[in-house]
Design a protein around this nucleic acid. Structure first.
Lengths: 205, 205
DNA sequence: TAATTTCGATACAATCTGTAGCGTAATCGG
DNA sequence: CCGATTACGCTACAGATTGTATCGAAATTA
């Protein structure tokens, strides 16, 4: 009894797809649902988002959605991760401070687009649900932080940054700043991103 | 036609309460509603929040609530501001960097408590509604920023901080960091707050 | 073919939304 | 005190949404 549907893919590396008896899960239905969920979040944000709408837009039966996704929050976050996760790319050039600027600019740019609205909705859902907080942290926040930390460590090794740099706090600062602006509805243009980078870098050298 | 109920108090200094004909708005009902809304947000977050529940808990008729508050988002944010707004107190001691530490610690402490959950819910609602974004910015974000800016300017005048300090960016950084941690569900203890302060202050001197 | 599992469809009670209509309560101006 | 005005509580309503249960059909393995 009590299988464990797990919504697919979000936990990274589940057991290999050893097929058991019975009709296999429809991959196309899964994609339709996640796609429709993303589209609705992108268009109308948290307010217009409902399982019902996702079902109608995707053409997948509501009961099928309930079978695989335990809550709106999880559905929202998985649709976001599927679309946004692959975008994560931390620059690795010569100068660590230049890389840092590029990273901040890239994060701001990514969230300035329509994906930002989805991200905001997703995290909005997340805070009422322990499980979705975990999903967001493990699949989005932590990977970003890990890569940023490597970048900063490189800067320390190269002697560009101070050796007693509190790396996690630096990351808190710039990720938080970007995210808070997204939420507040302030602009996330490259000029702002560069100014933020400069301010933070001032404390790193 | 088309009166403008304005939910009271959130716009700061509306016209003085010049009474017109008719039964006056019940102040006790208003307080009951805001109190109930806050209690529900504090307990169950965004998920359990509905006009219906607020009506039942407050003992105020649902129709009366709809009369004064145009949306869940506005109701949520006003209940938050009424409770949290007065808590804003920016320290003003001798050393500007000490004041800055105290400010960060105070903000983190305030949001670490149950009020944090309410704040998170409120902002979650806000991003789908232009009006609530404005309310949040004008009544919470901007005042905090203004006071923090004064603190930082004082530091520049006293020669403790660098003269080319990009004050708005510094504020983006520390406010964002606190808020993002709140959303993510990470701890907001005094140790963390102090570490963040130190990291940011490193770039200010 | 038999067992198994998914999928889509329908149905259901429960909750929530937003609005309308009604009678009552409170306040102001004359 | 009276009439006008406005707020309040109550009831009712249509529509949307939730979450679950049940059923038959489809797909796949053994």
């Amino acid at each position: 009894m009590e299988q464990e549907p797990s919504g697919s893919g979000a936990d990274g590396h589940g057991a290999p797809p050893r097929r058991t008896a019975g009709r296999p899960r429809s991959e196309s239905a899964r994609r339709s649902v996640l796609g429709a969920a993303y589209a609705i979040l992108e268009e109308g944000g948290i307010e217009d988002f409902s399982i019902d709408r996702v079902a109608r837009l995707s053409g997948v039966a509501r009961t099928t959605i309930y079978r695989w996704w335990p809550s709106k929050a999880v559905l929202a976050i998985e649709s976001f991760l599927e679309q946004f996760g692959p975008q994560l790319a931390v620059p690795r050039g010569e100068a660590p401070d230049q890389d840092f600027r590029a990273l901040v600019r890239a994060l701001a740019a990514a969230l300035a687009g329509p994906a930002g609205r989805v991200a905001a909705s997703v995290v909005a859902h997340a805070q009422s649900d322990e499980e979705t907080q975990r999903l967001f942290r493990e699949n989005f926040s932590d990977p970003l932080r890990t890569q940023a930390a490597e970048l900063l460590e490189r800067g320390i090794t190269h002697g560009v940054f101070r050796s007693d740099l509190d790396i996690p706090r630096v990351i808190d600062a710039f990720v938080g700043a970007v995210y808070f602006r997204l939420i507040i509805g302030s602009s996330l243009g490259p000029d702002w991103a560069d100014a933020l980078s400069e301010t933070i870098l001032n404390g790193c050298r």
